[in-house]
Design a protein around this nucleic acid. Structure first.
Length: 581
RNA sequence: CGGAGUGUAGCGCAGCCCGGUAGCGCGUCUGUUUUGGGUGCAGAAUGUCGGGGGUUCGAAUCCCUCCACUCCGACCA
């Protein structure tokens, strides 16, 4: 039985703020500070106050329940990890300054874990020896540390954060696929129970590596990722990954002669197209990047050609053979000395370096481009006639209106917050770290791995991004710090009000609701309502003499405009019907 | 690390140009009043003006330096 003192406002730290702290940019950060959920202690490091922690724990509980249901087993691994494991996987060298490296008193190297592939692989290679123990999936809910270049948006992108990470081990790709599918379904259940509007989207596998991957995004304006959706199917992909289909029609025939035109001082696509009075779609831009590193450490220049209105997709580009990964733009000095032209006037015609042209740029006829001569552009340019047929590839970001890669409908673009990510890792870590089991034939076989993450602290912030109004947070019932706020009017003066409020408080708590009883006798009604609204408590009952005399109590759902008078005797049942825990 | 900016009471800010006894609003505390949506009144506490150095009779203010933080571009749950 829980002690009720934890739920009386007089015994609970209500740390609400009337004014918005100046350094909070996004709404979730502002409201978490104002509602008294978190306080900053240093860049990217936050204290969680009682109100915030209640939400965090509820999120964890739902994740735990669904992970357990999926057959995964919970473990707990250390935050501090020995460097040797990271050297074994090769990531001690690969990881940049984001990996916080520390030494102990014996001068031995450790790091604060940004993720736990090495540790779990080390643990499991020692424990699992036989195919009979597979498949197996282990998860933990634990603090991670990443020394982010730029922490921001409060707990949305902090340096220290809580993550649920799971790692599965298999003998076959089919088994991995089965668990991957189970985790996909489990994630859908988790985010549904959390009350979030979300979408699973196809994703790039990023630095963790592997073959196949989905991200789970909460749709919100403040999201840092662009997600492309088909308007006619379930297709959704991170813009990093979304394929731009080649144009279906044939390239138009040349109609104009190529001409050189002076464009003094015009460098950007906007300047040039405005100057020539044409659409950016009729121009081409040429970006110079570095080629892959050669044996002698040199890197040649490579040109990437895009339609003027399109954006380079760096992820797609760096996957092309011959291009350096990570993608690196060529220093201006090298462009100037090796190509004899400044950045604003480069074009594909007569360019003496390897060239990769995006489908859309390759489809243009009579286009405009830099003349490879400072201050000049070419008009009426045509492929084949003026410059040899280009090597064509998909290197741009899709834009709204592009045909969907799934073949149905066109793409729309929305912002998303990445709250979950599932990967098929394959043998990247098990191979490097020799995690093997004996198979049915008695032979050693490297285990195949999957990994599955959820940003727990980020979930809390993203829930707010989706659920707020001008008065504050509006929690979904499943993760609300309290389900019900009991707000008595003039409890200090009215014995009837005090009696009923206490009675209801006990009764509702015993049923199992989390109730916050605003029991400060001197508190003013307006202040209590402002606080309970700001804190986002989804259900509120106001008890006053006026209602009691009429035999009713006022109820208002945080999300609704209107309040309603409920007969006192019906109230408990009414609340049971209202609250979906 | 690059670019821009800010550090003055718990929070939000003014004062700085043009040096001369530290200010406003909110919050906090006391009393009083009010009580169906952040009441009104009266009073009180709280500051090494980010740190250090310099110029000056005198520095929050001018100069140097260090530190911290925020915002804009390269990371990811």
């Amino acid at each position: 039985m829980r002690s009720d003192t934890f739920m009386r406002s007089s015994r609970f730290l209500i740390a609400t703020l009337k004014e918005t702290p100046a350094d909070a940019e996004v709404i979730s950060h502002q409201l978490m500070l104002r509602a008294g959920m978190i306080r900053k202690m240093a860049t990217g490091l936050y204290n969680w106050l009682p109100l915030g922690l209640r939400v965090l724990r509820k999120v964890e509980r739902i994740i735990r329940e669904e992970m357990d249901k999926s057959g995964a087993q919970e473990v707990l691994m250390p935050l501090v990890q020995p460097a040797e494991l990271w050297e074994e996987s090769g990531r001690w060298q690969q990881y940049g300054p984001e990996l916080l490296r520390i030494t102990d008193r014996h001068d031995r190297a450790f790091c604060l874990g940004p993720t736990h592939e090495e540790v779990i692989t080390d643990l499991i290679r020692g424990e699992i020896k036989s195919y009979k123990q597979l498949p197996a999936n282990f998860y933990q809910i634990q603090t991670k540390f990443r020394d982010e270049i730029r922490p921001r948006f409060g707990v949305m992108r902090s340096r220290e954060f809580i993550m649920k990470d799971a790692y599965s081990f298999h003998l076959s790709h089919q088994s991995l696929q089965e668990t991957y599918d189970v985790m996909h379904a489990t994630y859908c259940s988790i985010f549904t129970r959390l009350g979030l509007g979300f979408r699973p989207v196809l994703a790039d596998t990023g630095s963790i590596g592997g073959a196949f991957s989905h991200e789970f995004h909460v749709l919100a304006e403040s999201g840092e990722d662009d997600i492309a959706f088909s308007n006619a199917s379930d297709y959704a992909a991170n813009i990093e990954k979304a394929e731009a289909l080649p144009p279906a029609t044939a390239r138009p025939a040349p109609a104009q002669a190529m001409k050189e035109i002076a464009t003094p001082g015009k460098h950007s696509i906007e300047e040039v197209s405005a100057f020539l009075n044409i659409k950016p779609e009729q121009t081409v831009k040429t970006l110079i990047v570095l080629g892959s590193v050669q044996a002698d450490k040199s890197q040649a220049l490579v040109a990437l050609v895009l339609r003027g209105d399109h954006e380079l997709n760096e992820i797609k580009a760096e996957k092309i053979t011959g291009i350096a990964s990570p993608l690196t733009f060529a220093p201006e000095v090298r462009i100037k000395t090796e190509l004899g032209v400044s950045v604003g006037s480069i074009g594909p015609v007569g360019l003496k370096i390897p060239m990769i042209v995006d489908h859309a740029a390759a489809h243009l006829a009579d286009f405009v481009c830099g003349a490879n001569k400072d201050g000049y552009h070419l008009t009426g340019v045509n492929w084949d006639r003026d410059e040899k047929a280009p090597m064509v590839a998909d290197i741009r970001n899709v834009v709204a209106g592009d045909p969907s890669p799934c073949g149905k409908g066109t793409l729309e673009i929305k912002r998303g917050i990445e709250v979950g990510h599932i990967f098929q890792l394959g043998t990247k870590y098990s191979e490097a770290m020799k995690a093997k089991v004996l198979n049915e034939a008695g032979q050693e076989q490297t285990m195949i791995m999957g990994c599955y993450g959820i940003g727990v602290t980020r979930v809390v912030a993203s829930a707010i991004e989706q659920n707020f109004d001008e008065n504050g947070i509006i929690w979904p019932d499943s993760i609300a710090p309290f389900h019900i706020a009991i707000v008595p009017i003039n409890m200090g003066k009215s014995e009837a009000v005090a009696k009923k409020a206490n009675e209801l408080y006990t009764q509702l708590s015993q049923i199992g609701f989390d109730v916050l009883f605003m029991d400060d006798e001197k508190a003013r009604l307006g202040a209590m309502l402002a606080d309970t609204d700001l804190m986002g408590i989804p259900h509120r009952v106001v008890i006053g003499d006026r209602g009691l005399e009429a035999g009713t109590i006022e109820y208002k759902a945080r999300r609704d405009e209107n309040k309603q008078e409920i007969a006192i005797n019906d109230l408990v049942n009414f609340l049971r019907g209202q609250i979906k825990v």
